[in-house]
């Protein structure tokens, strides 16, 4: 058996591959809506805000339970979005500046709490420091099952509420006009983003999670003009990045999984920018070249006709 085949034979690696694929899939799906709603940075803010939430959940409970982390991250994420909303509504500060302030405050608080935990001598704390950049190798079979459930819920809700999410992303004013509970749907999408972030903390870490939410969506946008197809494609790109990143990491010399997943997603993005039909750079160059040669041909014919007439 060749070297890279042995990787797949290892049951531990199989679980990690499966887990990272699911993570990429679900964050790609929900990330599409965040991207289209121009909330790309919001994903980043939510991911950074999750850190203090998770730390506090750990400090209060003393255990590394995903359910508690989810609650902690959701509370912190809600506090962060509320903070951003409050600042933009009640001051002259624009949303980008508000995001930057809130994001760094929460992240700073998270780092302080993380250091505090590491010095507390709690025997259970090992691995918590991996939340910054993630460590996929620490994923157990149980973690992967939880991720499978999370993915199912995320994709299920996105499928059921596809029509509602679509209208909310395209024209929230009209959605409110026909009676959609826009504030509720807003919060729901935020919450789903938080769920995806928490699912990704272990493997990718809070710092890089935003890339996994947004990059597949941006890449998918290049290939299609249909929302349903874009969301599916974004999920596929995410899953592919998760698989390929984990695979490279497990064959290579101890390269970190999370950053590799993000780099693969970026590679997919660059490929999309170059090669996508219509929107891609190559296709635009080709189109321009063919338009130019056509214009030139027409000119040649025109001149020939004129010469003919002059004679």
């Amino acid at each position: 058996m060749s070297d890279w085949m042995t990787v797949f034979a290892d049951p531990n690696v199989q679980w990690i591959l499966f887990g990272c694929m699911l993570l990429g899939l679900s964050s790609g799906v929900i990330g599409s809506f965040a991207y289209l709603r121009k909330q790309s940075l919001m994903g980043d803010a939510l991911a950074h805000a999750a850190l203090p939430g998770v730390c506090i959940a750990f400090m209060l409970s003393g255990s590394k339970s995903i359910a508690l982390f989810l609650i902690g991250a959701a509370v912190a994420g809600t506090a962060a979005t509320f903070g951003i909303g409050y600042i933009t509504r009640h001051t002259r500060i624009k949303q980008d500046a508000a995001l930057a302030i809130v994001l760094s405050t929460f992240f700073g608080l998270g780092i302080v709490l993380l250091t505090q935990i590491q010095h507390s001598g709690n025997g259970n704390q090992s691995g918590l420091d991996k939340f910054l950049f993630g460590q996929a190798a620490t994923m157990m079979q149980n973690d992967v099952w939880i991720m499978a459930i999370i993915s199912l819920v995320l994709i299920g809700i996105s499928t059921l509420l596809f029509k509602e999410f679509k209208l909310l992303s395209f024209d929230p004013g009209f959605a409110r006009g026909i009676g959609y509970p826009v504030a509720f749907l807003d919060q729901l999408i935020m919450f789903l983003l938080v769920v995806a972030v928490v699912a990704g903390i272990q493997a990718v870490g809070v710092v890089l999670m935003a890339a996994l939410l947004i990059t597949p969506a941006v890449s998918a946008r290049y290939w299609t003009e249909r929302l349903g197809f874009m969301v599916a494609l974004s999920g596929m790109f995410g899953a592919l990045s998760g698989l390929a990143g984990t695979f490279i990491s497990s064959t290579g010399n101890n390269l970190p999984t999370g950053p590799l997943i993000v780099l693969v997603a970026t590679a997919v993005f660059f490929f999309s920018v170059l090669a996508a039909p219509r929107r891609g750079i190559l296709s635009k160059l080709l189109l321009r070249a063919s338009a130019r040669s056509q214009a030139r041909q027409e000119q040649v014919i025109l001149q020939a006709v004129r010469r003919e007439q002059d004679r």
């Binding site: 992303s169 395209f170 946008r221 299609t224 003009e225 249909r226 929302l227 197809f229």
Partner: peptide, 10 residues
């Protein structure tokens, strides 16, 4: 102008 017309739909 209230919406972004570069939305993936027809």
């Amino acid at each position: 102008e209230s919406v972004d017309w570069d939305f993936p739909t027809n």
